[in-house]
Design a protein around this nucleic acid. Structure first.
Length: 117
DNA sequence: ACCTTGACGGTTC
DNA sequence: GGAACCGCCAAGG
């Protein structure tokens, strides 16, 4: 089944633009679930491969508040995430992304216009 | 029902 | 920076 929280989180992640990243806590806040960053991580692990409602869910654009990839370093997922980010011109150096440069700064008006909840 | 485990994060030292 | 601490809470044992 799909929970309401998963819907919100997946949908919010879909709003992250190409070439930008967001952190777990940021997604939680925007999804209306403040303080629940861990939930975001869990939900991203269960994203359907075919995406959600016809659109891909760019899970790899979500990293932790320190700008680091949270998957185990060297794991298959870690490698894939790094590759996908670099494919979008996001610079990953020493397992780190500069949030200063690449963090998504959403336009709240536009975001509220697109989200369903 | 109880305990542990996380793709986490803010605070504090 | 970084480490210890605490808050968070859905799943799985």
């Amino acid at each position: 089944m799909t929970t309401e929280n998963e819907k919100r989180i997946w949908q919010t992640v879909q709003a992250i633009p190409f070439g930008r990243v967001a952190c777990y806590g940021q997604i939680a806040d925007l999804a209306g679930l403040p303080g629940r960053a861990r939930l975001v991580g869990r939900c991203l692990a269960s994203v359907p491969k075919q995406g959600w409602q016809g659109k891909a869910v760019p899970w790899y654009r979500v990293i932790n508040s320190q700008g680091k990839i949270s998957l185990p370093a060297g794991s298959e997922g870690f490698i894939r995430q790094t590759q996908l980010l670099q494919d979008e011109q996001v610079v990953v150096i020493g397992n780190k992304v500069s949030l200063k440069v690449f963090q998504w700064q959403p336009d709240l008006h536009e975001l509220l216009f697109h989200l369903d909840y």
